[in-house]
């Protein structure tokens, strides 16, 4: 276990190092942050002053060194747009993003896995075939389009659900969240569904594929021979064996969801990290972009770690060390 932790942390450092290099050179080489700070017709002195203020006059490796030092201390510099700490901006937006991600994840878990189990256990049935066709549709749908259709149908045509912004937030367990108010939930619904849809399809397909292979195993027949009821055979014996690849994908999908929040949040004007990123990209706001990338990289390494831990809980054959 200790050895495992050490290798994991080593990986984290390596990943963050590669990512930071890329981020730094990408931001230094491409794009000119001066445009944002300085007036169009600024004099050379003004430009010079701005460059010194940003440290752009130093050679690249010095800039990189400074970048690493400040990154390690969690300081990504001030956002050019908002003039506050980039990391703080992201941290502020983080809960809003997690809200739709969590709801989307729950939606896909509770709907997609049972359907996948069913479709995998009885591949020949009508319902399974319908479910499969729907899932192909699901992975073929551009998520922004789903969002637009939902906005049009529920927001504009029937006017039953709000389509923009986060709505009222209430306090739950000391955290300001949409989960606490009805209005918050209403606002949450459409973005979450949009986010969940393609994710559901992916998880469903994976569960089904796994179930189809598991159901052919001897121990399934043996469980039946023991007189175990059908439902228990499917969800007790088969699903637990199928779950291992599903958990991996669940972990990976969580990452994908976070990536796709950029789109969902843009469409629904949801004030989360994703929208912040897109705004920052459009405005060339370097500190926010770098902070976002590092933040997300950190989160993913952490997620992978959690997924590994879950493995050991599900599959006794896996030993982390």
């Amino acid at each position: 276990m200790f050895k495992y932790l050490v290798t994991r942390i080593g990986q984290l450092v390596a990943v963050l190092f590669i990512v930071s290099m890329l981020v730094f050179f990408m931001t230094s080489v491409v794009g000119d942050p001066l445009q944002l700070l300085v007036r169009q017709n600024a004099s050379n002195e003004e430009r010079q002053a701005a460059m010194e203020y940003l440290g752009l006059d130093k050679p690249l490796y010095v800039q990189y060194g400074k970048f690493i030092v400040s990154t390690l201390s969690g300081d990504f510099g001030k956002s050019y747009m908002y003039h506050t700490s980039a990391l703080r901006l992201i941290a502020e937006r983080f809960p809003a993003t997690m809200e739709i991600v969590i709801v989307a994840m729950l939606l896909s878990g509770f709907i997609a896995i049972p359907l996948g189990v069913y479709a995998g256990a009885y591949p020949k049935r009508m319902l399974s075939k319908t479910v499969m066709t729907l899932s192909v549709t699901g992975i073929s749908l551009p998520s922004f389009w789903v969002g637009m259709v939902l906005i049009f149908v529920f927001g504009l045509h029937f006017s039953v659900l709000p389509v923009s912004g986060r709505g009222q937030v209430g306090s739950l367990l000391g955290i300001q969240t949409s989960f606490a108010t009805l209005d918050g939930w209403k606002h949450l619904l459409l973005p979450s569904i949009t986010l969940a849809l393609s994710n559901m399809a992916t998880i469903l397909r994976l569960t089904r594929a796994g179930m189809r292979e598991t159901m052919k195993q001897d121990f399934i027949k043996f469980a039946r021979a023991k007189g175990v009821r059908n439902r228990k055979v499917l969800f007790g014996h088969a699903l637990k064996n199928t779950l291992i690849p599903v958990v991996t994908v669940f972990g990976l999908q969580l990452g994908t969801l976070i990536a796709f929040t950029t789109i969902t949040e843009t469409i629904f004007a949801w004030p989360g990290m994703g929208k912040l990123l897109i705004d920052a990209i459009n405005a060339g706001d370097r500190p926010i972009i770098s902070a976002y990338i590092i933040f997300v990289a950190f989160m993913f390494v952490f997620l992978n770690f959690i997924v590994d831990l879950l493995y050991t809980l599900i599959d006794p054959r896996i030993d982390l060390s």
């Binding site: 080489v29 990976l252 972009i289 997300v296």
Partner: peptide
């Protein structure tokens, strides 16, 4: 492996933000 731990969409998006 490193790349696979990040969603493709996100990488593409960030790359395009620099290009």
């Amino acid at each position: 492996d490193v790349q696979l731990s990040f969603p493709t969409m996100l990488i593409a998006l960030l790359l395009m933000s620099f290009f």
